[in-house]
Design a binder for these strands. Structure first.
Lengths: 243, 243
DNA sequence: AATTATTTGTCCGTATGTATG
DNA sequence: CCATACATACGGACAAATAAT
């Protein structure tokens, strides 16, 4: 396992505080020397940490006038660290999951259509292998989640659009983060709502799989749209229920 | 204007070299001391620069074994700096512009629909103001481009989805970068293709504007889709022509 | 308009940690 | 398990920018 550097730790600590409103946009951070004392690291490390936050457009450093927190709409949300801080934030995580799903709804059906159009034989073979893994892990939720991730990934990477692929990869990682941090587990919830959800879900995946492999872009798009709409329903239901 | 720090300059220099294949994925960079000598900066600055590249998943630093360039599919493409390097790369920029447009096609129609559904009175007023600015700048290409950017932004921000808004903002900035670096200017090209493109384009924008203001989500989505498909046609035509 | 004070930005000598052979 | 080579971390000094006086 990869061990986090000191500056990464500090980035996470300060980043979480900012996301959770402990420090608000517009406020000024203490100067570097003070911060480095607070967090028990050298100025070098603290400077690197501040640069990490600045790269994500969360703070801006100005000579003499100090370092300030930038307004929320400037933050670079499409970053795994920022996503993890939001996923852990009680105030933010619900809206975050819905927003992610909305973006997914725009992109992933198109990605499926592109994959149906452009997948090479090699890519189709990989998609097939991923689907077969899905069939075999119906009874093991953890293995199924991993297989599901790989299945979607194999389709995403067949789009031959690196920008879209990178974005959807990040989005799915965000979804996983979001699910991990959700106490009222979505898995448990789906089990409550339906008698036999897994075979129905597998059939949806089979539809998608067949559409992509057979090169039917329109059907792939439609099936993917349905799948995500279904997920959104479950999320909305699960979030309603909390009150 | 904001002046770039030394480390930012070094990030750009090395980043461009990597994007252009001067240094390839898998290759190892010289050690920090050597690099800092090559670029005429201190080790501190070079370390900050390397961290900037590492944050974008372009390199990974390992103790003892040194710093290596990561494979392309790990790079964080959704970053303005990375986008600017690609936009300046002769080998990459054409595909990049098409890929961007494809992502736009997935997202922005949905964003328009969301805006039509959720825009507040205040946001509608801003959208109206932006549209009126469009009407008034028909004869000034530079002012029109700026007004166009703001018009799209005003719709994007009415989605009430910060993730989508941040993404589309970045995407539009990427489009601008891409256009700036394109020698065979798209503007000139459109003028060659049509007699009177500007009024037709304005009418498309009026359709979109009216749909959003009247809360007609389906129409807003359809009009936006048409607009982007039209842009894609022009891009494809312009890129074909280069040979 | 000039000076000063404060804070970030830069430099470098040194020490420590860690993975590789 | 040791030696080596590299990134990582420390801290004191100075440079540059700019808000306040």
């Amino acid at each position: 396992m990869r061990v986090k550097s000191r500056s990464e730790e500090v980035v996470n600590a300060i980043g979480k505080d900012i996301v959770n409103g402990v420090i608000s946009p517009g406020e000024r951070l203490p100067k570097v020397e003070e911060l480095s004392e607070d967090y028990g690291v050298s100025r070098t490390v603290m400077r690197e940490a501040l640069q990490g936050l600045a790269a994500r457009k969360i703070i801006r450093a100005n000579q003499r006038s100090g370092t300030v927190v930038l307004p929320r709409d400037e933050w670079q949300l499409w970053d795994l660290s920022v996503m993890s801080w939001i996923s852990e934030s009680e105030q933010r995580k619900d809206k975050f999951l819905l927003d992610l799903t909305e973006v997914r709804l725009g992109l992933e059906p198109d990605a499926a259509a592109l994959a149906a159009k452009h997948a090479t034989e090699e890519e189709k073979a990989r998609i097939t292998a991923c689907f077969e893994r899905l069939e075999q892990t119906l009874d093991d939720p953890k293995a199924w989640a991993a297989a599901d991730f790989d299945f979607h990934l194999s389709i995403i990477e067949a789009t031959h659009n690196q920008l879209m692929a990178g974005l959807l990869k990040l989005l799915h990682k965000g979804l996983i983060l979001s699910r991990e941090k959700t106490v009222t587990s979505l898995n448990e919830h789906t089990e409550l709502q339906q008698e036999n959800p897994t075979t129905e879900i597998l059939n949806r995946h089979r539809n998608l799989y067949e559409a992509v492999i057979s090169g039917d872009a329109d059907r792939a798009k439609a099936v993917m749209t349905d799948m995500i709409l279904r997920v959104r329903q479950l999320i909305e239901a699960s979030q309603q229920q909390q009150f």
